[in-house]
């Protein structure tokens, strides 16, 4: 899932200065799970913004809506009849949701309320961590299901580096486990340590961001 974080309130209030009548639209999928932009967070943020702007922008009104998945135009269709009556939309979806709204409603100003961070998972209550960088050519089969691209701070495919100590990464030993220690331990558990004797060739990054914006096309489901 996509993990995001609310922008600083001052940044959001600054972006709202030119507007009087704002629609805040949340997304009830990824950003609801990471407690950044679901229906609940829309209510909390809009309440804080109303309180914060009560004196300086007393005429500002903020309406609240939440769609199921803002990255799918069909799910935003319910906004079509009313979205034109607002000066701006403040979206608490990830960057994909914000751009979907902007593409779908070209006459409407759409502002982001979140900073989209990464693809990851909930690790424990209140903690989310990165798992995939979307490299476009998954190598998890060779590394015991642990991604060296994302979880090794130096993206090493033939690790570890010299900075791994006591199973921790030198970049931030407190918070980051050494991905190569994790890979070693996992392969040992699976009885596949011999995999580490093979040199992983240089990765072809053209499948990643280096090849420009990417598309996936499935002819079998495309009309």
């Amino acid at each position: 899932m996509i993990i995001a974080e609310r922008k600083p309130i001052q940044e959001i209030t600054a972006s709202l200065v030119p507007y009087k009548n704002v629609l805040m639209v949340g997304c009830n999928t990824c950003v609801a799970v990471c407690l950044a932009g679901g229906a609940k967070e829309v209510s909390v943020l809009s309440a804080v913004l109303r309180l914060a702007l009560r004196e300086n922008q007393p005429e500002l009104t903020i309406a609240e809506r939440c769609v199921e998945r803002q990255c799918e135009a069909e799910m935003n269709a319910e906004l079509a009849t009313e979205i034109g009556s607002y000066d701006a939309v403040l979206s608490t979806a990830c960057g994909v949701g914000v751009q979907t709204l902007a593409e779908q409603f070209p006459e409407t100003v759409v502002l982001p309320a979140l900073n989209t961070k990464f693809m990851g998972r909930p690790e424990e209550l209140g903690v989310w961590s990165e798992r995939c960088a979307g490299c476009g050519n998954c190598v998890l089969d060779r590394f015991g299901g642990i991604c060296p691209v994302t979880r090794c701070s130096k993206n090493l495919l033939n690790g570890p580096c010299g900075g791994s100590a006591n199973g921790r990464c030198e970049v931030d030993p407190v918070n980051i486990p050494c991905a190569w220690q994790l890979i070693y331990d996992r392969l040992a558990r699976l009885g596949q340590l011999e995999r580490l004797t093979a040199i992983e060739p240089a990765k072809d990054w053209s499948t990643s961001r280096h090849g420009g914006p990417r598309r996936v096309i499935r002819k079998d489901v495309k009309l």
Partner: peptide, 8 residues
């Protein structure tokens, strides 16, 4: 914390 961040 939210109120503080909002300057209130």
């Amino acid at each position: 914390a939210l109120l503080t961040e909002a300057g209130l």
